[in-house]
Design a protein around this nucleic acid. Structure first.
Lengths: 337, 337
DNA sequence: CTGTTAGCGCATTCAA
DNA sequence: TTGAATGCGCTAACAG
């Protein structure tokens, strides 16, 4: 970039002192109208752009909030990003988004980068960061975490965790209530806390209703569509009595759905299907998919507000994210049979 | 944030001068091993984090590339974001992503913000920015644009535009080739260049094959699922001879698909359906949706490399994005009828 | 209301 | 190999 115009150049052009220009720029003090006009003209003429670095260095504030997301292209976390943007809007703070690609080392690197950029607060979406990293972070600045059960209260940090286990349990209970007795499960990767909790919830529900937990009814996926397809194929082998499948996320449920279609099995008449996460597309699958919805956007927005409130020393009303069973058309009743 | 540790404090702690610490940090010069160890120890002990602002101010470089996306939660553009991340990886540059929410004023504001942050290059995804803004930008720094046909060659900028019109034409031609004669279209918002071009392509194909363009066969949507559903319902009224519909994007095609399902119409037996964009989910719809794929991730990656090459004064091999018809199972042949 | 002065934290001369 | 001095562009006292 060709050397950028500086504030002093503007000052010289307008025939005033640098501080005057600064004051006009920031509205820090009343300034003679005529001079103000001169300055605006000079700014226009020279194409002046204030240098954030210099300003931040001088003020000691960056006006930015770091956001760490595991994947910039994840339909799941992106709703939260939208929420964060909304929450920050008009606050004078802007988000700096970095993705950690589900890798601890990259995430730690990303956090370091954000710290270098002197973000004043941080929002962490899911991810693999060890708890002690999060604690260390919360001790330095306001931190909001989404999707992990961790107690940051000691430092005043906050975590919005969804109760995956309870929701999975509700979902499977719903299936049982509709008369299903042999229920398969396509699980997520076992190194993923959410996946483990959803599996636990599945097991809880079975146990609670006196149904046997059969490991053969559980196949492992990786949260991607293709693994749902394969998982369903495997479940179908040798489980002719299975009437419903709880898939650990919607993406895999889409794959499972396709596997059934390929085999000429109807949903929900021949097989009931439930997912998890309620992706935007899940209202438009065929049939619309029963799933559990986490208010990602609202959570993101609240977290942004939380960090802002901490920064301003204000109080903020607590937020209880409610997970919601989205009952749609992918589950049939087995009562009559 | 509690006052951060500075380089001088590290220097004092280690008993050396600030310049020495700086040299160790940047590997600018050989330094006595013993001192280097001292310094590393001090950095560790104090929890020192270099201040990006100060460094950028001193060096006059920011090490960041601005990325403007119309929507942080768009499944379409996010693939490009992933590609950009990949393209920048290991280059020493990192992306700063801002979204403009499809609004010209917000986009201009975002660009200003990026300029303030002294990004060294910029990548613009789609959006509503007027051409002259883009030209002005390209005159200042390396710029890569995705999804808009604009000639930035004068300044050395580049634009990777997809030929929406040609692809739409190919798609509709394909339908005609499969024996369809009455083909509906659910279009995108008319203020959206992509939408207009896709409509044009639809018209081109009909004309080319001697079919009449019937305005009643075109209904307007807004690129969202729900408008596809409504659009399909409206198309179905009074067009009993329609056998195929070209939907201007996949999201709307999902909605259209659901409308058909609700009415008990089968795809593709009763109605053929084609979309546009080939979202990740489109391989898993029921049936898998025929669509046209733009290599968004590859384009994003190449654009990142392009900007880097400009920054380094290197040459880069040109990139011809190829759009690809993804022929899947949502189209039936009408030949025999 | 306005100009002058003194840093903010760092990289980079220039000497030693 | 190392330290001292200087300046990047801006804001914030401090005087006037």
């Amino acid at each position: 970039m060709n050397r950028a115009v500086t504030l002093s150049e503007v000052a010289r052009e307008a025939g005033v002192s640098p501080s005057t220009v600064s004051r006009i720029l920031n509205g820090t003090a009343r300034v003679n109208d005529a001079k103000a006009r001169q300055v605006r003209l000079a700014i226009e003429k020279l194409g002046y752009t204030p240098n954030t670095f210099a300003r931040s260095l001088a003020t000691g504030t960056s006006g930015s909030i770091g956001v760490l997301t595991p994947d910039i292209a994840s339909p799941f976390y992106n709703d939260a990003l939208s929420g964060i943007e909304r929450g920050l809007m008009g606050s004078g703070y802007s988000p700096i988004i970095i993705s950690g690609h589900w890798r601890t080392d990259e995430e730690e690197h990303a956090v370091a980068l954000l710290l270098n950029r002197r973000v004043e607060g941080m929002i962490i979406l899911g991810g693999q960061l060890p708890d002690h990293d999060l604690h260390a972070l919360a001790a330095r600045l306001p931190v909001g975490v989404l999707g992990r059960a961790i107690d940051l209260g000691a430092h005043g940090g906050v975590s919005l965790a969804m109760d995956n286990r309870q929701s999975a349990r509700d979902l499977v209970n719903y299936l049982i209530g509709r008369g299903h007795r042999v229920i398969g499960h396509i699980s997520g990767p076992p190194d993923h806390a959410d996946a483990r909790q959803r599996l636990d919830g599945y097991r809880d529900a079975l146990q609670e209703r006196g149904l046997r937990f059969d490991p053969a009814l559980v196949v492992q996926g990786d949260f991607q569509e293709s693994s749902g397809l394969i998982g369903m194929q495997r479940l179908l082998q040798g489980h002719s009595d299975m009437t419903a499948v709880f898939v650990a996320n919607d993406q895999m449920a889409y794959g499972a759905r396709l596997a059934l279609y390929r085999l000429g099995l109807r949903v929900p008449e021949d097989m009931s299907l439930v997912g998890f996460d309620d992706l935007p597309g899940s209202s438009y699958t065929m049939p619309p998919l029963t799933s559990v919805r986490q208010p990602m956007a609202e959570m993101g927005q609240w977290l942004a507000r939380y960090v802002l409130s901490r920064l301003r020393g204000e109080e903020i009303e607590p937020f209880e994210p409610r997970q919601e069973l989205m009952l749609r058309e992918s589950v049939a009743s087995r009562r009559g049979r």
